[in-house]
Amino acid sequence: MEVRTIKVFTTVDNINLHTQVVDMSMTYGQQFGPTYLDGADVTKIKPHNSHEGKTFYVLPNDDTLRVEAFEYYHTTDPSFLGRYMSALNHTKKWKYPQVNGLTSIKWADNNCYLATALLTLQQIELKFNPPALQDAYYRARAGEAANFCALILAYCNKTVGELGDVRETMSYLFQHANLDSCKRVLNVVCKTCGQQQTTLKGVEAVMYMGTLSYEQFKKGVQIPCTCGKQATKYLVQQESPFVMMSAPPAQYELKHGTFTCASEYTGNYQCGHYKHITSKETLYCIDGALLTKSSEYKGPITDVFYKENSYTTTIK
């Protein structure tokens, strides 16, 4: 009895394709271990004539594949690729409408935090270190965002349907971005203890939790000093293409032309909904596939993004 075979390709990165001759009487799992086709788990399936010449994702289970996976995804987590594939199996079914010149995501599976993050990423200057993220990001900007969303979920250790947080998501993504040249110098002034300067680099240099107003941050924000008295913390120097200011959701007025974009969060910790506000020729609110415009805006804002380049204080 002759062994019926077909020729397929296996890959971990969709760049390096490895030619395989597979036995049609055995499952993919018996031949390769966990195997995925377009995100779908085909591990328990036997090869079919229609699979001839198709590319299958496999887990990096030998040295060659491990090197290829690390170079593309910059992670050695053995569960990463499987999590990416199972997320992709959902995100490829989502709709990605162009809204006001940006790629958004039609609401499904509690994905409003991903839509808000995706919209924000198209408006701030950011370059990702893992080629996987950078490639998928370019495709997302062009309207094909399924891979990018699935990668975000995998890097953030999230599953489809789980509630997510924009600030946490951005923080994970910033860790995989090139923020080497970003720098922030802060000064804390206390009447009792004097003053202390701190220099922050990388992710810490672009994120701040405690106030939404970048102007206020430049002037000074009140913080408790270690001595128990009130101290003032203010920005001395900022070198970065953008800054992200966050605070627990509270009524906040966004003035046209003073910011790049913002995240609105309605609801409580267990259950809520994100919308995205962007400042173009007027203010726009993007909620999944829905767009509304207004000249002014007041609502429960939790993150505001500002364009920056270089700032030095005039406070002496």
Rank of each mutant, 00 (worst) to 15 (best):
G257L: 01
F242P: 08
V3C: 12
T55E: 08
D38E: 14
H273P: 02
P241R: 05
D38Q: 11
T75G: 06
E264C: 01
D109K: 04
E125C: 01
Y57W: 09
Y234R: 09
M244S: 03
Q230H: 08
D135N: 12
P47K: 01
F128M: 06
F148L: 13
H276C: 07
T11Q: 07
S263I: 00
G299D: 00
S246W: 04
Y214E: 01
E308P: 08
T314H: 14
H256M: 14
F174L: 10
G299R: 00
P131V: 01
E204W: 04
T232S: 05
H176N: 04
L118S: 03
S295F: 09
C227G: 01
D165R: 06
M245P: 00
V203F: 06
L65Y: 08
T103M: 05
I152V: 13
P241Q: 07
K92G: 07
T19F: 11
I301A: 00
K316P: 14
V166C: 00
G288N: 00
G82P: 14
C193F: 00
G53R: 12
I277G: 01
Q270Y: 08
S240K: 02
A146E: 06
Q195A: 14
I152W: 00
G299K: 10
L126Q: 01
S181L: 08
M244L: 07
T266G: 04
Q237R: 13
V99T: 12
S181F: 12
P241G: 00
H276A: 04
M24E: 09
L254W: 01
G29W: 11
F56D: 05
N268H: 09
H74Q: 08
F9C: 09
K229R: 14
F128V: 05
G257N: 06
Y306R: 08
N100H: 15
N49P: 13
E2L: 09
H51N: 08
E52H: 14
L126N: 02
L59P: 07
Y284C: 14
Q222N: 10
A150V: 00
Y274F: 06
P78K: 14
A262E: 03
Y36V: 07
N178V: 01
V206M: 06
A231N: 01
T76G: 10
A117S: 09
Y252C: 06
S181T: 13
K191L: 08
A231I: 02
A250G: 06
A247I: 03
E296R: 09
A117Q: 08
I277Q: 15
R66Q: 13
K191P: 15
P241W: 03
G33R: 10
S279T: 01
L121A: 04
C261R: 01
K92R: 12
M245L: 07
F70L: 15
K229E: 14
Y214Q: 01
T55M: 08
S50T: 14
N129S: 06
G288P: 05
A154Q: 09
S246R: 05
Q270G: 03
V189E: 13
T55D: 08
E68W: 00
G161V: 07
S240D: 00
D135M: 09
L212W: 03
Y284P: 01
G143F: 05
T199M: 07
L254V: 09
T5E: 14
L173M: 14
T76N: 11
Y72I: 07
P248R: 07
K7I: 12
Y284T: 08
K293I: 07
G53E: 12
F174T: 08
S86T: 11
I315M: 15
A145M: 02
T282P: 02
A177W: 00
L17G: 03
Q195N: 12
S263D: 10
D303E: 04
A145D: 03
Q251V: 13
E264V: 10
D13Y: 11
T103W: 03
H256D: 04
N89K: 11
A150G: 06
Y155H: 06
T198W: 12
H256L: 15
F148V: 04
K229G: 15
A146S: 11
F32T: 12
V243F: 04
T5P: 12
A146N: 00
A177P: 00
Y113T: 08
H176T: 03
V304Q: 02
L200G: 08
Q237C: 14
K95R: 10
L81M: 11
T292M: 07
P34Q: 15
N268G: 09
Y306H: 04
E2D: 12
I315C: 15
T312H: 13
T76R: 10
K201G: 05
A289Q: 08
E204I: 00
I15V: 15
E253K: 08
N61R: 12
K7E: 12
P241D: 04
L235M: 01
G267C: 05
R66S: 12
M24I: 14
E253Y: 11
F305R: 00
D180M: 02
C156G: 02
N61C: 12
Q20L: 08
G82M: 15
K106V: 15
Q197K: 11
K280I: 03
M26S: 14
T292A: 04
T192Y: 09
R83I: 06
N16L: 09
I124M: 05
T43W: 02
Y284I: 12
N268V: 09
L283C: 02
T75W: 07
D63E: 10
V221K: 03
I15F: 12
A87I: 05
R184S: 15
H176C: 03
L102S: 06
K7P: 13
T312I: 14
Q195M: 14
E296N: 14
A115P: 04
E239H: 10
C156Q: 07
K183L: 10
H256E: 07
C156K: 10
C261F: 03
N89P: 07
Q222Y: 05
A177S: 08
G202A: 06
G257F: 00
V236L: 07
E296W: 09
T43I: 09
H74W: 11
A154G: 05
A87P: 02
Y252S: 01
K46M: 15
G82F: 15
C261A: 07
I124D: 11
I286D: 07
D77I: 02
P300G: 08
A177H: 03
T5F: 10
S263K: 03
I45D: 15
F148C: 07
A145R: 02
S50L: 14
M209C: 13
A262T: 03
L291W: 15
P78W: 14
E144G: 09
S295W: 12
N16K: 15
V42H: 12
E71T: 00
Q237P: 02
L291N: 03
S171I: 10
R141W: 03
H273K: 00
G288S: 02
W94F: 12
Q230P: 12
L59R: 07
T198E: 12
H176G: 03
R167Y: 03
N16Y: 01
Y265N: 03
K158L: 04
K158A: 13
S86K: 09
S213G: 01
R141H: 09
Q230I: 15
R184G: 12
M85Y: 15
V58S: 07
R139M: 11
M26R: 12
F174G: 03
Y297V: 07
H51E: 10
Y72R: 10
G82W: 07
V21Y: 14
H51I: 02
E264I: 11
D180R: 08
V243I: 06
D63L: 10
K293R: 10
K95D: 13
G33F: 06
N49F: 12
M209E: 07
C112I: 04
Q30H: 14
R139S: 13
D63T: 10
Y284S: 01
L212M: 06
A250Q: 15
I277N: 08
K191V: 11
G53C: 12
Q31F: 13
K7Y: 12
T19I: 11
Y208F: 10
Y84P: 06
I6W: 04
A231L: 03
Y36L: 04
A115T: 14
M209H: 15
F70D: 06
F174P: 07
A136P: 02
S279E: 07
E68H: 09
Y84K: 08
V42N: 07
A115I: 07
P248W: 06
T75L: 09
F305W: 07
Y214W: 05
N14G: 15
N16E: 10
H276S: 00
K229D: 15
R83N: 08
T120E: 06
S295A: 15
I277H: 02
Q216V: 07
A40C: 10
Y72V: 05
Q195F: 10
G202R: 05
C271Y: 12
I301M: 01
K191Q: 14
H276P: 01
E308T: 09
L17I: 15
